[in-house]
Design a protein around this nucleic acid. Structure first.
Lengths: 230, 230
DNA sequence: CGCGCCGTTGATTCGCTTCAAGTAAGGTGG
DNA sequence: CCACCTTACTTGAAGCGAATCAACGGCGCG
């Protein structure tokens, strides 16, 4: 992990690239950016651990983050898989509680770190910011319920299809997985081997084509038909 | 479903029984109660359906509620299992969005229904109420992440043990399931048969005793050992 | 009484995990 | 630059756990 000290304005520009902070005036953004740190993380490095006081908000400018819980026996369950640009841990920071889960980097990451006091000052300057963050938190909550509901569907291939369609909704027919396949697998609640087999199965049915981390959706309605058959 | 018209004061008393509304002054509670409805629901009746505008907050005074999503093919996934006293749908009502899931009664229920405008007036009279509701929403979110993480643990019996310990944390060693077993099973992400077998297995190991809807925790540390072995 | 729902138990099937092996790509040190 | 290691991914084979199908007893209800 390496902390950079870019010249003024660079941080503010990074902030502007996140939808949440676009509500701020350029001047407010600069005030906030003045108290931010810009960090480079290696793959696998931790942003924070579950149980620590949530005194920093992380804004991922580049890379991908795994938010996870560790169970006994080293078992990991990935709760969220986030691709830049994204916010991490806005809920606990907002509420002033401990981080409810751990987070680390699925890839090398560029991250803007905002201390909580700096955020609170920004709230004071612009009331809308808190509401905007709250909205982001609610979106996160929707994803959680959707994810939980998805785990009820049985077939692994179906969950994968559903996930790919979700990505396609944002990215179009040419989807790029936000993290290494093993992490995606864990996020979808299956072993890497099962994920691989699920992709192979979809590929053999002519529904998708796989090229490394890129997945081409060849037959969107075919995937949707899979879901409908539950 | 039947709407009652109790005499003044009864509704306010019901409100007072919910922790969230205990922050209100007695007078504010009465003002809020004046705009509330008291309803009796039969088992299986729906409070609301996913997609409807969230214009009412439900306060469960008696009974138990299933919050669920329906997938294709009539598959149901229970997201939350709530026992009175509890709030239902505070998040979407707060945010002014649609209900993100459906809800119905796992048992006959007594429910206080608060129209959104009435709540907003109450927010205006007492700022703390909104914060208190927000806190409740965050608690809900924690439960969601915990639930999602729990679905990662493999053995069904382990999930059941974990769930029972969670209940015991609130209720003590003599736990009462908040809903019929089939609903608990669905909440834990398994079939009723599997849930039954998991209980039998724990019972045969002398860890619990089961009596209808009541479960006695006989060997708490034994259950915890199960979790630790993951 | 007869019907339907809930819960339990048994037998069977299916899908996933697990174990194992092999390939390929990236990084490190000689 | 190459030998070597590690990690990611894929595929195959075997074992196990959970879903499914089926049957039965108990209970509430019309």
């Amino acid at each position: 992990m390496k902390t950079l000290q870019p010249r003024a304005g660079v941080l503010a520009n990074h902030l502007a690239s996140l939808p949440v902070f676009s509500v701020l005036s350029p001047r407010d953004r600069e005030l906030l950016a003045d108290q931010a740190l810009l960090r480079l993380y290696d793959r696998g490095e931790a942003l924070f651990e579950r149980g620590q006081p949530a005194d920093r908000l992380f804004c991922v400018v580049h890379g991908a983050i795994r938010v996870l819980r560790r169970g006994p026996g080293g078992r990991e369950k990935v709760i969220h898989l986030l691709e830049a640009p994204a916010l991490v841990a806005e809920v606990p920071v907002l509420m002033g509680i401990d981080y409810p889960a751990s987070a680390d980097c699925a890839e090398p990451c560029t991250v803007l770190v905002l201390p909580r006091p700096a955020l609170q000052q920004a709230f004071h300057r612009d009331q809308d910011l808190a509401l905007k963050l709250l909205g982001a938190a609610m979106t996160r909550m929707h994803e959680l319920t959707a994810s939980l509901a998805a785990h009820g569907q049985k077939s692994g291939a179906v969950r994968v299809a559903s996930y790919l369609l979700g990505l396609a909704h944002t990215q179009g027919a040419e989807v790029c997985l936000p993290a290494p396949k093993k992490d995606v697998a864990c996020y979808l609640g299956m072993q890497p081997e099962s994920f691989s087999r699920a992709l192979t199965s979809l590929r053999k049915d002519g529904l998708i084509a796989v090229d490394e981390q890129r997945v081409h959706i060849l037959d969107r309605s075919g995937l949707e038909r899979l879901l409908a058959e539950s």
